[in-house]
């Protein structure tokens, strides 16, 4: 393992004309990490990945990979970094095999046939190797794109929303494969708008409006949510909501299907308090338990987006 981090970014900026897509990004990615760039559309995730991939020149700040400034060394670095764009271009009128071959020749991979066969096996596409890419299902296309991206055995892989629109079984297969690659030493940077996907990452960077809001391990991030999160299920939802909205210490309340989630702050026995309040209103047949906050709960808290107030967003 070399001493310099895989990616080292300080104060990086990206501009498109007058628009600032990234304003001062700081991230360090060590070897073997799975870093998640999480944020809504327009947060600057794709622009950041494109700088790391050597496809976009930053407007300011420092962006290095393996100790080298990325932009001036982009040609040398292409061999060590793989990039799977959101809409990865496969050639629809080429077969699975031919698509991989194309990328192998592009990257001048020696002995690519062996590597191709091995990758086809790993993404379970060997059976479909002679099929035209256009005739693959969405999930299979995504697996083929990943194989193309891995043909030159990169040390770091940048993935932009790799599982958007992919079915759950394929999605799980993709993450399984990515997990294996990480075990083998690959470093991953994944951009995703889905917070459940972020749970797969060893470190999460929350982005909004081109800036970093938080940079932590998922567990640490969840610990930043103050108070206790309590789930109430089994009661009449409307009545439960009404009672709990007015309960002292309730900082946030949200309905999840048949359950109501409430966050209480400054209460020593949150479950007791919730039970007592509901019992006071004659609601007794409920199941009340403390739950672990999701990354979504944490994200909403950290971005200061109050779910109740719809006004803040329009400038």
């Amino acid at each position: 393992m070399s001493d310099s981090p895989v990616f080292d970014v300080r104060g990086m900026q990206v501009r498109y004309g007058a628009a600032e897509a990234v304003r001062g990004l700081d991230i360090t990615v060590s070897s073997g990490e799975v870093l998640g760039l999480i944020g809504p559309d327009g947060a600057g995730k794709t622009s950041s990945l494109r700088v790391l991939a050597g496809l976009l020149r930053p407007a300011g700040g420092r962006a290095e990979a393996f100790g080298l400034p990325i932009w001036p060394n982009r040609r040398a670095l292409h061999g060590r970094i793989g990039y799977l764009a959101q809409r990865f271009a496969l050639y629809g009128d080429l077969t699975v095999d031919e698509n991989i071959q194309f990328f192998a020749l592009l990257y001048s991979v020696p002995g690519w046939r062996k590597r191709r066969d091995e990758l086809l096996e790993r993404v379970t596409l060997t059976r479909f190797r002679h099929r035209l890419a256009d005739r693959l299902s969405g999930g299979m296309k995504q697996k083929l794109a990943l194989a193309c991206t891995l043909i030159h055995s990169p040390e770091a892989l940048l993935l932009d929303e790799p599982t958007t629109g992919v079915d759950p079984v394929t999605r799980r297969e993709l993450w399984r494969l990515l997990g294996e690659l990480v075990v083998e030493g690959l470093t991953l940077v994944v951009a995703t708008p889905y917070l459940d996907e972020a749970e797969r990452c060893s470190r999460v960077v929350l982005m909004k409006d081109g800036q970093v809001l938080a940079d932590a391990r998922p567990g640490e991030l969840q610990a930043r949510l103050p108070g206790h999160l309590v789930e109430v299920s089994g009661g009449p939802r409307a009545a439960v909501t009404r009672v709990l909205k007015n309960l002292e210490g309730v900082a946030d309340l949200s309905v999840f299907g048949a359950c109501v989630h409430v966050r209480l702050e400054g209460i020593s026995d949150p479950i007791g308090a919730v039970r007592a309040a509901l019992a006071g209103a004659g609601i007794t047949s409920v199941h009340v338990r403390e739950i672990r906050p999701s990354l979504e709960d944490t994200f909403l808290y950290l971005t200061g987006s109050k779910p109740e107030g719809a006004q803040g967003e329009v400038a």
């Binding site: 409307a238 309905v255 909403l300 779910p307």
Partner: peptide
């Protein structure tokens, strides 16, 4: 698809009111 988590939660709160 494509909206941020805060907007998504507001949308679902609205869905819940409609259903109620």
């Amino acid at each position: 698809g494509g909206v941020d988590p805060a907007a998504r939660r507001r949308f679902w709160d609205l869905i819940d009111e409609l259903a109620a």
